[in-house]
Simulated assay, not measured.
Amino acid sequence: MIKKWTVILIPHDRGERRSFNMSDVHVWVAAGTLLLLCFTSAVFFQRSRTTAERTRALESDYRALEADLNSPEVNEAFDAKWREREASLRGEFEDRDSALSRELSRVYDLEKEVRIITGLPTQIVEGDDVPLPPADGEGGRLGEFSDGAVFTDNEALLPPHAIYGLAKPSADLMMQEIQLRRGSLENMLQSMEAQRVRIAHTPSIWPTNDVRRRITSRYGRRTDPLTKRLRQHSGVDIRADYGSPIISSAKGTVIFSGYHQYLGHCVKVDHGYGLESWYGHMSKRLVEKGEIVTRGQVVGKVGSSGRSTGPHIHYEIHVNEKTVDPKNYIGH
């Protein structure tokens, strides 16, 4: 059975009295609410005290740390540690800088060796493009010149790189050096390609693979085998068996394939660069005018056509429309 409670409020100044009827449920709800409020207040109060204590402790630590940081001993130790770290980083940078400088110098030396081997000219950096060290430097010779010292007025022998003579070149100079080396290597590659093409077009082998080949009549003044008179021989005569292959001594274009009054069946090849090779006294021609031939390609067969006493190859080399000794264009 639910009990009921009556609460009467009587004012002190003869005002109207008021009464409230409450059951057990209302009483317990009110009591629970009051207890909950008390508990929550106690929790927040305790947390507030804890936070305040921690704040005071942190403020104390901060003041102590600030005092330590402002002390000369701490500042000196910090500065010493910073200088040590700075020196370490500077040392690492200088080591890498020196290593890079050495590698660039090695690249330059290798490039110079390749240019010497291939016969390509040394690259020269013109005037204002070359950065110079400060004008207040000092130097001079030792008591005696060291081994390997070079004395020359030829600018082609001077090292054209930006870091030459600098003990500690800057990063900008090393970047410029890299750009110089890249440009020089690109130029060298182009020059080597042009040289490779020219080599391919330069006569350099025997015009026959006959194992018994040999020169039977040399270039220059000789006794004519038919008239027995002294005459100029414009090429060389090479012994070879009748019908054996005659090969082109370099890459080129056939500019003549026909019958010549003296050379009989003849083929002429233009190799470019002012070079021509002539093959005479053939028994058979195997190429036509305008055809492109490669080094070693068969252009005809050995014969004895034209003004000849027997099977052989009459071989001529023309440089800028003048005959030269073909022996200088035959490999050994």
Rank of each mutant, 00 (worst) to 15 (best):
T40A: 13
H332P: 10
G272P: 09
S217F: 05
R49T: 12
K322D: 03
T40N: 13
R17D: 12
T55D: 14
I2H: 03
E103I: 13
G306M: 10
Q179G: 13
I205S: 01
T152Q: 08
L173F: 02
R54C: 03
P11N: 04
H312A: 02
F39W: 15
G220E: 00
M192S: 12
G303T: 03
G139F: 00
K112Q: 09
P11D: 04
D136M: 01
E177N: 12
T50V: 10
L104I: 14
E92N: 06
R295L: 14
R198H: 08
V254W: 10
T323F: 00
A31T: 07
S184K: 05
L35V: 15
L132S: 15
L9P: 13
H332I: 06
L58F: 10
H201K: 09
L100A: 04
K3F: 14
K81G: 04
N21K: 13
L9T: 15
P121V: 05
V302W: 00
D128Q: 12
L180I: 15
S105E: 14
K4C: 11
R218G: 08
A156R: 02
L120Y: 00
D210T: 01
P160H: 03
A149N: 12
V293E: 01
F256A: 07
H281C: 03
F93Q: 07
A171D: 14
Y315K: 05
R222N: 00
S244H: 07
A167E: 13
D61G: 02
I292P: 07
S60D: 10
S191R: 13
V197P: 04
D109K: 10
T323S: 02
K289I: 03
R285K: 11
G252R: 11
V319D: 05
Y279K: 03
L35N: 14
G272Q: 11
F151T: 06
G119R: 06
I117F: 10
H12C: 06
L166M: 08
R218P: 08
T50N: 11
N154S: 13
P72T: 11
K4I: 11
E53T: 05
Q232W: 12
W278Y: 09
F45E: 14
Q297T: 02
D95C: 00
E66D: 08
G274R: 12
T33R: 15
R295A: 15
R106S: 14
T40P: 06
V267G: 01
Q46N: 09
Y164Q: 09
S184L: 05
G148C: 07
R239C: 08
T50L: 11
D153M: 11
S146L: 06
T216C: 03
F39A: 15
E276I: 04
A149K: 12
V236R: 00
M1V: 05
H271Y: 12
T122A: 15
R198K: 12
S234D: 10
V287W: 01
D224V: 04
S277L: 05
D24E: 15
V197F: 11
R295N: 15
L166A: 03
R18G: 01
G300C: 02
Y62N: 10
E76M: 09
P134F: 05
A156C: 00
G15R: 05
Y273P: 11
Q46C: 05
R307V: 04
V114H: 07
T118Q: 04
T309S: 03
R47Q: 15
S277M: 04
E155F: 09
A194I: 09
R56W: 10
S283P: 00
E316W: 00
A52W: 08
G306V: 08
I247H: 10
S304F: 02
L185N: 04
R14S: 15
V25Y: 00
I247A: 07
E321R: 12
